[in-house]
Design a protein around this nucleic acid. Structure first.
Lengths: 190, 190
DNA sequence: AGGGCCATGTAACCTGTTACATGATTGA
DNA sequence: TCAATCATGTAACAGGTTACATGGCCCT
């Protein structure tokens, strides 16, 4: 259900197309919630049936028509009701293919596990660099902000908080993997 | 697809019932991969059709028959092929309802966000205590180990690694939430 | 010349959740 | 006595993935 609320939440900032909502889920909000374009379109249809959003068709010459979605008052109410709730379960179900492979580490063997852990560290670092180094963070946010009618510095604080969260989690994963390598190397000596 | 590999992996330790596999996913492996019982049963049917597992029915008096699943050689091969691969995408898709709400923090307001963050910290701490303090960690592992034919100290090392990972991630989340509260409190003063 | 962006989706499929159905035994 | 554990599932639904279809514009 959360995708619906995510879409409604973004539409409270400004009306926009499904395509644009998809881009936002792909490029900025993805540290909190991921969704594909086809999923976004399907969900928008549902929201329209429930009268949480309406759309107007904007015709364009020699380009596909655009459907500009706008949140209704009912939609806003629904969104805010959800927003003020605290989720009953703070632990979201984990599905981490990498960790599953580590679970079977005794079959893989320590050398291979260490090899995998080293790649893991590199990829996590690359993700952090993609936010820090390349300033994707700021650009991501700029692009989102541009599309929004109301741009307040307060919003940015919260966006930075969740991006920071993403970065911190990656860093901890790197720390964990580093100490895991040490543990396994000690084990090999004995 | 990973659930299938998870099930095959556990069956390499020892043949067992679907119910038991479900318990293991519920109680020990869940830090890496979660699955419900009904999902496990469905997946076992598929694995049987693909000839990766076989089962024998053990009749019991006045109790439902047990289906003991055993991995086939083909199943073992498939599992090991998967195990040795490095997942192309190390970043598993994030779907975190709590973080989604924080993203919309400007609508919620700082006081409410701080309130939610404090609850968040408590629940994450409770999770850690449930592993550390109550010694659930060791008991979880004991229960799993009991059912396994081959019990080597090497396996335990890897299990401890992924549980440690779960604990570390919770601790980082607590750290993040604590610093987020500070940020928001400073903001309120200004 | 070819790939990526804009912009719409649909269809089929796979995965995950929730509720239902049955029923004995065991421990608090 | 009541909930939990053992033990099997099915059915319906919700949510997520992948592939297909269309087509112009812009940049390299």
């Amino acid at each position: 259900m959360s995708l619906a609320y995510g879409l409604l939440g973004i539409l409270t900032y400004s009306p926009m197309t499904g395509y644009h909502l998809g881009k936002i889920f792909d490029k900025s909000i993805n540290v909190a919630w991921t969704a594909s374009l086809s999923q976004v379109y399907r969900e928008l249809n549902r929201l329209e049936k429930q009268k949480y959003v309406t759309y107007e068709i904007v015709k364009q010459e020699e380009k596909p028509d655009r459907k500009i979605y706008t949140i209704t008052n009912e939609g806003k109410k629904t969104f805010e009701t959800w927003l003020f709730e605290m989720p009953e379960d703070v632990m979201s179900p984990k599905r981490d293919e990498f960790m599953l492979r580590i679970f079977f580490g005794s079959t893989l063997g320590p050398e291979k596990v260490i090899e995998h852990l080293k790649i893991y560290i590199k990829e996590k670092q690359a993700y952090i660099d993609g936010i820090h180094g390349k300033k994707v963070l700021i650009e991501k946010m700029r692009k989102v902000v541009k599309t929004m009618a109301i741009e307040t510095p307060v919003q940015k604080v919260y966006w930075q908080l969740i991006i920071q969260n993403g970065v911190m989690m990656c860093q901890s994963q790197i720390e964990w993997a580093t100490s895991a390598i040490e543990t396994l190397e000690k084990m090999e000596v004995i």
